[in-house]
Write a protein that binds this DNA or RNA. Sequence first.
DNA 1: CACACACCCTGTTTGC
DNA 2: TGCAAACAGGGTGTGT
Length: 333
Amino acid sequence: MPELPEVEVVRAGLQPVVSGAVVSGVEILDPRSLKRHGGPSDDFVDRLVGGTIDAAVRRGKFLWFPFEPARAHDEPLALVAHLGMSGQVLLRDRDAEPDRLMRIRLDVESPAVGPIRLAFVDQRIFGSMALDETVPTLDGRPAGFAGPRLLGSDPDALDARGHRDVPGAVGTDADPADWVRRVPHQVSHIARDPLDPAFDERRVIARLLARRTGVKRALLDQGLLSGVGNIYADESLWAARVHPEQPTESLSAARARVLLAEVRVVLLRALGEGGTSFDAQYVNVNGQSGYFSHSLNAYGRQGETCPRCGTPIVREAFMNRSSHFCPRCQRVR
DNA sequence: CACACACCCTGTTTGC
DNA sequence: TGCAAACAGGGTGTGT
């Protein structure tokens, strides 16, 4: 469940369960799911067991759990999870039948719900878990979103750009905990996402216009802005009436602002519908699917009519994937 | 530094 | 029905 809304749905589902939870047991069923862990499986297990998870934090498509090891460590650690193309984190009873494609099993004692299992399930093994050191954020702002509820679920908390920035809430500037302003080393090169209160819109637009590539490639560059993948790139470009191959250097700042505004609208709408799901592969922590697939205007709709003008949506090969757009509404100009 | 591309993997769906 | 090919929403490393 790979893009920002789907990862946020998972994060929000885990946050109340993992906060303050003590890890009681870890089993690596497939070591390939630890490929981003800088050490052997034994090291992963040994350092995790007995420790306490502080929270569930997300930046873009990356999810991590700030973590206090059983024995005081010189540097704060984080358990980093990336879902890749097909990863899931599912909450299961410990005596439940194991999920067939479970790669990592984490048993925790949760203050909120008691003993429970976090099952890392991943068909294609593009996802991973890892223990990683953390570094302070460069701008001194919170490293990601760690709120107690789904991002965007409280309309009163959103500012004009769709940002949530509530003083005093976990994961905002007012939170004194150390982990709030520390980011896992392997996430530190990932840019902030467009729903992050610390997202620097002017700087991102300046960098976007300075590139010499197609605008969709830029939208997918997680070092420029994070959280947008193939589905939401296509949906945002459709909403903003921008062709995916529109050269970035030909965009006006005004058009770039409109595009980023549409990115936010699309991400927030998807959040409101629990994310996009095409099948059982993409589910929340309880195994339930979202509904945004019913709201798609371009993605996966090749041959069907554009909801705006009635022209058939086309699909074109793009970076080993596909772009879907309306050839009439979205022209290179 | 920025960009384009190859690569990593497996299970399910499709088309013959 | 059986089989192979196509397909899938990710990030990273490398070479230019």
